[in-house]
Amino acid sequence: MKIEFNDKGAVATVTVTSTVFEFRRHKRAVDTALLLAPGTIANRSGFFLMKTVISGPTARVIRAYKNVLREAAR
């Protein structure tokens, strides 16, 4: 699982990329981040190589990023 944080000023993004073999882990990490960081938006794409982009205000996306890292390490 690859997790990237990009700060673009007022808006930030977190990109989570993983393979189909890590589907449950990917889904759990993204869903937890969205639940614990309200006001963020997620765009999902791909099947064999899953990619989710979480975007929103920087403070909320930082909170989502920390939650994704915590769930991915679990």
Rank of each mutant, 00 (worst) to 15 (best):
F5E: 00
R74A: 08
V53R: 13
R74T: 05
E71L: 00
I3K: 10
K8L: 14
L35D: 11
G46Y: 03
T58K: 15
N67H: 07
V20P: 01
T58M: 10
G39V: 13
T58W: 12
T32K: 09
V11F: 14
E71N: 00
R24D: 09
P38I: 03
M50T: 05
T32Y: 05
V61C: 02
V30L: 12
G9T: 09
F48V: 06
V30R: 10
F47R: 06
T17N: 04
R25A: 06
F5W: 03
G46M: 02
R63W: 03
G56M: 11
K51G: 00
I41N: 13
A72L: 11
A72I: 08
S45A: 09
T13A: 14
I3W: 04
K51H: 01
T15A: 10
E4A: 15
L36V: 04
S18P: 01
I62R: 08
V16F: 07
N43A: 02
K27M: 07
G39H: 12
T40C: 09
T15S: 11
T17D: 07
M1P: 11
L49F: 04
R70Y: 02
V68K: 07
R25Q: 07
V20H: 11
D7A: 11
Y65I: 06
A59E: 15
T19V: 12
T52S: 10
A72N: 04
A59H: 15
V61E: 02
D7K: 11
G39E: 11
F23Y: 11
S18K: 04
R44T: 13
T58S: 15
T13E: 15
E22K: 03
A73M: 13
H26P: 00
H26Y: 07
G9I: 09
H26W: 05
R63Q: 10
A12S: 05
G39W: 13
T52I: 06
F48Q: 09
M1G: 13
V14M: 10
G56V: 12
F23H: 05
T19Q: 12
A64D: 00
V16H: 09
V53F: 13
V16N: 07
R25T: 06
R60G: 08
